[in-house]
Design a protein around this nucleic acid. Structure first.
Lengths: 119, 119
DNA sequence: CTAGAACCTGACACCCATGTCAGAATCAAG
DNA sequence: CTTGATTCTGACATGGGTGTCAGGTTCTAG
């Protein structure tokens, strides 16, 4: 598929898709004229990338991480180096803290919303 | 307490504390010489602010939200307007999605970490 | 009184994913 | 071929909290 369709299906702007490619997170074939041609699996990959961004990972980490992920088509995956594993473990801890924070914030909102609802 | 101590105790830079004040999220008495003097409750408040930032709320929303929160000292709290409630409800939904995303990313990391551990 | 620590204001820089625009080339359908 | 939709590259802008520095004032212990 081409970039417009991928953008529509993932809800990610074309701008961002090109950026992902430049950062090495996403690859695409090219038509003779130079237009990008994505495989079906790109949809899943882009969604993963977005999730990882939302989790606070930077492009660089994602670039290292992606080849170690089990591919959607069950293809072979690269094994993470011990160093990368250490970094990812730290990221994991950070994500845990982030989730805990989010839950506290959600509780705060709930409290305010509830207080406004009850007379 | 003064700004240095508050910064130390909350792990938030003095720069940010002054920024919070300028945005109207935090108030402080002043010594005759103009130095900020915070009450004990400021510690909790700053931590709350940080959590809300982490949850993706902008200063403006936080400013509206803070007076509606039950104060640490159980003081009286302002009631959220219907309009604010609507906005907070939307924020709450966004936080829920964010949490779901984070859990997926954490699972992704776990998978990669586990795959590297097992021979 | 004095030295040094702490604090003040204001301004500029940064991050980094994303938005946006311009000008040109490609693609697909008539 | 023509035309309109899509895509291309490159460059500049944005946001919003935070870092940092400069130059000056205030506080506090000795």
């Amino acid at each position: 598929m081409r970039i417009g369709e991928l953008a529509r299906r993932t809800n990610v702007s074309e701008r961002s898709l090109r950026y992902y490619e430049k950062q090495g997170m996403l690859t695409a074939e090219r038509t003779p004229g130079g237009h990008r041609e994505y495989p079906e699996a790109a949809v899943d990959r882009v969604i993963r990338i977005q999730e990882l961004f939302a989790a606070g990972l930077c492009s660089e980490k994602i670039v290292q991480l992606l080849p170690c992920m089990r591919d959607t088509d069950g293809g072979p995956s690269v094994r993470a180096t011990p160093n990368l594993v250490a970094e990812l473990t730290a990221e994991r801890a950070r994500i845990d803290r982030m989730i805990a924070d989010l839950i506290r914030s959600r509780d705060t909102l709930d409290e305010v919303i509830e207080a406004a609802r009850v007379p």
